[in-house]
């Protein structure tokens, strides 16, 4: 069995006092612009993947902020890296890099958590 403990969202409430912020801190370290998101939804509105399937890139950011890594790791697969979101973001967030960082980190954490 693989141990994806870092993916567990825990309870249904947002537990601010202890959630797994590893991913969030990682993303903020390499893409500090992410911190300025105001959840305007411009990215989701324009998103090429969101035009074809149920995908919400703004929520990716929200889940990241709340440590909801499980949902995140499934959803983020859908992005096509087209970069449209980055072109409309009023906060100039480098969303494409945020997605790259999340994908990278999740795949790293998955390998780390695998029992040898």
């Amino acid at each position: 069995m693989e141990d994806f403990s870092f993916l567990n969202p825990g309870s249904r409430q947002i537990d601010f006092d202890n959630f797994d912020d590893r991913l969030l801190l990682y993303v903020l370290e390499y893409e500090p612009s992410f911190v300025t998101c105001i959840s305007c939804g411009g990215c989701t509105a324009t998103c090429s993947a969101g035009n074809l399937t149920n995908f919400n890139v703004r929520k990716i950011g929200l889940w990241l902020r709340r440590g909801e890594t499980e949902k995140l790791s499934q959803e983020i697969e859908k992005c096509m890296f087209c970069g449209k979101c980055t072109l409309v973001c009023p906060r100039d967030i480098n969303i494409r890099n945020v997605i790259l960082l999340i994908k990278k980190r999740i795949s790293e954490l998955k390998t780390e958590n695998q029992p040898v």
């Binding site: 411009g42 989701t44 969101g50 035009n51 919400n56 703004r58």
Partner: peptide
């Protein structure tokens, strides 16, 4: 609550808007 990302003109000169209804969480 949602920012318009783009508008496109239809043949009848009406406009198709794209935004996200952020409170619903859906485009």
């Amino acid at each position: 609550r949602g920012r318009l990302s783009e508008a496109a003109e239809r043949p009848d000169k009406s406009l198709q808007l794209k935004a996200e209804d952020t409170l619903q969480g859906r485009p």
